[in-house]
Structures are given as structure tokens and as C-alpha cells.
Simulated assay, not measured.
Amino acid sequence: MVKLYEIAHCRAGDKGDTSILSLFPYRDELFDDLVREVTVERVAAHLAGQVRGQIVRHVLPNLCALQFSCRQALDGGVTTSLAVDTHGKGLSFRLLSMTVDIEE
């Protein structure tokens, strides 16, 4: 068992009230393990309380990346939110704290 931050990095972006989290393994050979372990259900459970809407996962094998669109995650969006993390950068760090069952 490892924390995602030990084997991957994450980039965050935002569109309105949607946070977009892109997860990239440090080593391409770990991509299939991430596909298996980092499911929508596990991400939703891990981010519960901060993401109130639907989470959609996109698998991008040519980039060795997973992208998660997290709706209703930014308290209305950058221009209307009074939340501390209006851009969702902290959400990417929260995702990286998730534990996965991967042997390095």
C-alpha cells in the first residue's frame, strides 16, 4: 500500500464550479495499476464532503494519465466562491493522499 503522491503527480484546473484533476504516474509502467486502483468510486469516497456533484473519469492511455472532472467542487466557482481553495489546487493534493494497493 502506498500513497498516490509516492508514485504520481496531479495537476488541477477549473471551469466554473468544476475542478479538473489530471493524475500522471511518475513511471509509465504504473499506469495500468492506477487505472485499476483509482476508480470513480474510490475517488468519490476519498473526496467526499468537498465534491458534491458527479465525478467523471477519463482514461488517457496515450498520455498515461487519468483525468477526473469533479462537478460542484468549487463552491460556485472562482468568481463567486468565498471558499479558501477556489481553484481546486488543494483538491489535487487531497487526491494524492489517497492510499492505493500497488507494489513498487
Rank of each mutant, 00 (worst) to 15 (best):
M1V: 11
K3V: 03
Y5I: 07
Y5T: 04
E6T: 02
R11V: 10
A12Q: 01
D14H: 06
G16E: 12
G16H: 06
D17T: 11
T18H: 03
S19F: 01
I20W: 00
I20V: 15
L21D: 03
S22L: 06
L23I: 03
F24K: 00
Y26I: 11
Y26G: 10
Y26N: 13
R27G: 02
D28L: 00
D28V: 06
E29G: 03
L30R: 03
F31A: 02
D32K: 08
L34K: 02
V35F: 04
R36H: 14
R36V: 09
E37P: 09
V38I: 09
V38M: 05
V40Q: 11
V40C: 13
V40S: 06
E41C: 06
V43C: 13
V43M: 14
V43Q: 01
V43D: 03
V43A: 12
A44K: 13
A45Y: 03
H46N: 14
H46K: 15
L47M: 14
Q50W: 12
R52F: 14
Q54F: 07
I55M: 12
V56W: 04
R57G: 02
H58S: 14
L60M: 15
L60I: 15
C64R: 15
A65V: 03
Q67N: 15
Q67F: 02
Q67P: 06
Q67C: 14
Q67G: 05
S69Q: 12
C70K: 08
R71A: 05
Q72H: 12
A73R: 01
A73C: 10
D75Q: 12
G76I: 09
V78R: 01
V78Q: 00
T79C: 05
T79E: 08
T79K: 04
S81L: 05
L82Y: 05
L82F: 06
L82D: 12
A83F: 10
T86D: 04
G88R: 04
K89C: 05
K89H: 13
K89G: 02
G90K: 05
G90D: 13
L91H: 10
L91C: 08
L91G: 14
R94A: 11
R94I: 07
L95H: 01
L96D: 00
S97T: 15
T99Q: 14
T99H: 13
V100Q: 00
I102D: 02
